[in-house]
Design a protein around this nucleic acid. Structure first.
Length: 906
RNA sequence: GGGCUAUUAGCUCAGUUGGUUAGAGCGCUUCCUUGACAUGGAAGAGGUCAGUGGUUCGAAUCCACUAUAGCCCACCA
């Protein structure tokens, strides 16, 4: 083996080997499978730390289950990401000085597909670098033929069920992008704005002259005076006594002269502003709801591009909304309606894409009625059919699902699944086909034509008479079908039958609502079964200071760079080790050294084993084994059992820790050191060889590349074989354990022995005994097995002699008490430190403190009678031990005083 | 405003149903390089578990309140 591990070469070699040999591929078979669908990244995306974490967790689970022998499918793919992708292509067009309108819909879409073919594979290639064992033969795209078919089918079905409807609704609207935005696509930012206090004269009151107050008016505070022409009421709180007299009266809307009612609604906050609110149902979401409750007219005064229309008043037509604001304010002042202006700080929504100020706009959009879909999805989690891991996320899920709002699914984009709704040409209103009332929802234009013929009684209609709704569907409308559309639905495929419902869904907390909850609803509604059994939610990877990673902040780490620097295994292992499911993870570059160092350790340990492999090979493990040999076999057995149990519970981090500790501490630090000087080296190394392969297999889900490479280098596997096809170790059989004489007592005995060795090392360090010096050691113990360990102790302690005396022997030498026995270090002939006396006094004080607290505890009647026997016995034993320790230290103190005296005499 | 979560060593975090003197990694201190590995080895220092009160024989762990931080939802015209 080479002195250094070449991660890059190994990663490239093994990934293509696995892929070419179908190691990732699965076909329906016998028995319950393990299946997972990947959260599809945006096709425009590049791999970031969030993906690295998310996919590492999935790959660990997937590789582990596959090695357990289950049929295992991890299905990859990408999301067409409507707005994001369209934006990328529009930007490219802009460089050519073109706009999408210049190309027209068809040509533009061609361009997007071209872009997708050329660059869309970026993230998919990057994912391979991570070592993902995804079944690339089944890679899907939310906009591919099959997924698109599923989308149309679902839309049609929901429409027929009355769950999809077209409605007037206030949506967040970006005037620049010309599309509705989902709530999450709006970014609220602090804004320094103004409150304009405007007087609305009460009908019937005397009109004042220009510039003077009206005799009777209501004062309204608004941040958006340009919407004033759309007001259809003013509202007060029903409990507000100040304004009780106004109820039922009407006021005059300034500049228009229109009369509007004064209404009472709980929505109005008495404390805020003047306590009187103007109600503009077409331009504010809250006002919209108030308007619904009071049956108010909705006056839409704005065009889609943010300019004013004729309903705003002749004077303002064609003005931009902000120019119009200025004009209206000026006119209000002119007319004497403006009382005063106040500076305020508020929040204003911006488009997450182009940063334009978002407008609330009344428009016709398509919606999905969510309540009927949500109910069974809530029930599935309540009943335990589907579990959240960690469980606390179920609360958040319920909270959202129980207060669910209808889902606006139409987007005014071109890149996406076009809404399968058709209208008779010419019926469309000015705002486009979406406003036509006569709509035919069908899976094809031909089918829609049949419907139209039937509905109109006009058999002469042709396809040319129909036009399709121009809008496309929200991207989530395809991703919510992901767990079954990717398996072939609506066709009844073998895959669908075998792999659905999937086993685990692994994702970050930020898309529980947008994606997870909706998949639950779609899965139950269309498949009759929830789409997965467990929803594993992990945190977000954050920068070292706890802030979110973002390119613009420059605080993001690039997983590909980390792979380049430390290797994919290092990235995977480190991230698994430092991430707990329960909270976000803060990372910096240095953290990934953990994994890099561990990789090096594995490589070097493998080299050591290789160097010690006899030419003729190892003989089978037989004969009476030494305690250390039994111990490592038991430790291996424990590790195997422990790790599967840990992974069953998704404790990825604990698993990483366990396997790290097993390999580094148990194998490298202790067993390898033992094996170097073992009485029967061939047997010791035969055991090491066996244990080592098990360790590699345990490690494989975390570190696929180095484990595969080492397994081949050491000859565990022949060419053409893969560690991926090995069985995940389950520990040794009862027969093996019996044959080798493995039992817990031996394990504990070796643990104790190690304690003695550590104690001696500590004594050497404390008394500054040169590392190379041979020392004389005495151990006071009654353990009958001790004598057999004299040789191994001598080596581990670098001792000239190791003598045993009965426990309780009282020697005047520096000592440490251990579970094995009291270890004494003879200082004769070695450097001494007179100042030790002081240190010992400190130690005596410390232990005396413990003794006092133990004595107090044992004197406590309540403790003795209530606590379990074992606890009481343990307390007594500890007390006794501490007492002995103090006695020993006191003796030692005397010795040091004596030594010091001797020194002084010199 | 409503909800959720966190607060344990200098830093990042474990701590399973309450049970001896609270752990790991990194960092720090001391020592060790012809030895598989200095990307290493040995030893060590460092914590009144955010605070207060309660339940209990016993609390980092359970309960209440307080403080601080973070996240989500709804957002004030």
């Amino acid at each position: 083996m080479d002195k250094h591990y070449d991660a890059k070469a190994a990663e490239a070699k093994w990934y293509s080997f696995w892929e070419e040999n179908g190691c990732f591929h699965d076909e329906p078979g016998e028995g319950a499978p393990y299946s997972v669908v990947i959260p599809p990244p945006n096709v425009t995306g590049i791999l970031h730390m969030g993906h690295a974490l998310n996919q590492t967790i999935q790959d660990i689970l997937v590789r582990w289950r596959r090695m357990q022998g289950k049929n295992t499918l991890w299905l990859p793919g990408t999301d067409h990401a409507g707005i994001a992708t369209q934006n990328v292509v529009e930007k490219a067009l802009k460089k050519e000085g073109k706009h999408r309108q210049d190309l027209g819909r068809e040509k533009f879409l061609e361009r997007v597909w071209q872009w997708k073919e050329q660059y869309g594979g970026t993230i998919v290639h990057q994912q391979r670098k991570l070592g993902n064992s995804t079944d690339w033969k089944r890679e899907r795209f939310t906009f591919d033929e099959g997924c698109s078919k599923a989308v149309v089918k679902v839309f049609r079905q929901l429409f027929d069920e009355g769950l999809v409807y077209k409605g007037n609704y206030i949506v967040n609207w970006c005037p620049r992008c010309g599309t509705a935005l989902a709530n999450d696509e709006v970014e609220h930012e602090p804004n320094h704005g103004h409150f304009w206090y405007v007087r609305y004269p009460v009908v019937g009151s005397e009109k004042g002259v220009k510039g003077e107050p009206y005799a009777d008016y209501v004062m309204v505070a608004t941040t958006r005076p340009e919407t004033l022409p759309g007001d259809t009421a003013v509202a007060v709180n029903p409990k507000d006594e100040r304004y009780a007299h106004l109820l039922g009266k009407r006021v005059i809307l300034p500049l228009t002269g229109r009369e509007i009612p004064v209404i009472a609604d709980d929505y109005v906050d008495r404390e805020f502003g003047t306590g009187i609110v103007k109600i503009t149902p077409a331009h504010d979401p809250n006002d919209f709801l108030v308007g619904k409750r009071h049956d108010l007219e909705q006056i839409n005064i704005m065009n889609g591009d943010g300019t004013m229309n004729e309903l705003a008043g002749e004077k303002y037509v064609g003005m931009g909304r902000f120019d119009c604001r200025k004009a209206i304010v000026a006119d209000l002042e002119e007319g004497g309606y403006l009382d005063h202006i106040e500076d305020i700080d508020n929040q204003v929504g911006h488009c997450y894409r182009c940063h334009e100020v978002v407008e609330s706009r009344l428009s016709k959009q398509w919606f999905v009625k969510m309540k009927p879909l949500a109910e069974p999805a809530i029930a599935a989690v309540k009943s335990g059919e589907v579990k959240f891991v960690p469980d606390r996320w179920s609360k958040i899920y319920f909270n959202w699902m129980e207060n669910i709002q209808d889902w606006c699914i139409s987007r005014q984009l071109w890149w996406g699944h076009r809404i399968p709704a058709y209208y008779i040409r010419g019926n469309a209103s000015e705002e486009g086909a979406a406003n036509s009332e006569q709509v035919f929802v069908a899976e094809s234009a031909e089918e829609a034509l049949e419907q139209a013929k039937k509905a109109t009684g006009n058999a002469a209609l042709t396809l040319a008479d129909l036009e399709q709704d121009p809008d496309v569907l929200d991207t989530w409308f395809s991703s919510w079908l992901w767990p079954f559309s990717t398996l072939g639905w609506p066709e009844k495929t073998k895959d669908l039958d075998y792999y659905y419902p999937t086993s685990d869904l692994v994702t970050a907390q930020d898309i529980i609502f947008f994606w997870v909850a909706r998949m639950m609803m779609a899965g139950i509604h269309f498949m009759g079964k929830a789409p997965f059994k467990n929803i594993v939610i992990h945190g977000i990877v954050r920068a070292a200071d706890g802030s979110k990673m973002s390119k613009s902040k420059g605080n993001s780490l690039d997983p590909l760079e980390l792979i380049e620097m430390y290797s994919a295994d290092a990235l995977r292992f480190s991230i698994a080790l430092i991430t707990s499911l329960d909270c976000d993870t803060k990372v910096n570059k240095e953290k990934f050294e953990i994994g890099r160092n561990f990789t090096t350790k594995i490589w070097n340990a493998a080299r050591f084993l290789e160097m010690n492999t006899p030419q003729e090979g190892f003989s089978p493990i037989a004969g009476p084994l030494t305690a250390d040999e039994k111990h490592i076999l038991l430790a291996t057995d424990k590790a195997c059992r422990k790790i599967s149990g840990i992974l069953e519970n998704y404790r990825i981090q604990d698993g990483a820790l366990a396997v790290y500790d097993f390999f580094w501490t148990q194998i490298c630090d202790w067993y390898v050191e033992y094996a170097k000087d073992a009485p029967d080296k061939n047997r010791a190394f035969a055991i090491l060889r066996d244990v080592f392969f098990k360790a590699l297999k345990l490690l494989h889900p975390y570190m696929p590349f180095v484990t595969e490479e080492v397994a081949h280098q050491l000859g565990y596997l022949k060419e053409g074989e893969s560690i991926m096809r090995e069985k995940f170790p389950e520990g040794y059989s009862e027969e093996e354990k019996a044959a080798w004489g493995l039992d817990e007592q031996v394990y504990d005995f070796v643990e104790k022995k190690r304690e003695a060795i550590t104690a001696l090392r500590a004594l050497r360090a404390e008394y500054k005994v040169a590392p190379a010096a041979f020392v004389n050691v005495t151990v006071a113990t009654d353990d009958a097995r001790a004598a057999a360990e004299a040789e191994s102790l001598k080596k581990a302690m670098r001792a000239e002699t190791v003598d045993f005396v009965p426990a309780g022997s009282d020697l005047a030498m520096p000592s440490k008490m251990t579970a094995f026995g009291t270890v004494y270090l003879s200082l004769e002939g070695l450097v001494d430190k007179a100042a030790e006396a002081k240190r010992i006094a400190g130690e005596i004080a410390k232990i005396t403190g413990f003794i006092k607290s133990s004595e107090a505890k044992l004197a406590n009647e309540n403790f003795v009678s209530h606590a379990p026997e074992a606890i009481v016995a343990e307390a007594k034993r500890k007390l006794q031990e501490n007492k002995e320790k103090v006695a020993q230290l006191e003796k030692l103190a005397k010795l040091f005083i004596c030594l010091r005296n001797c020194l002084y005499e010199k």
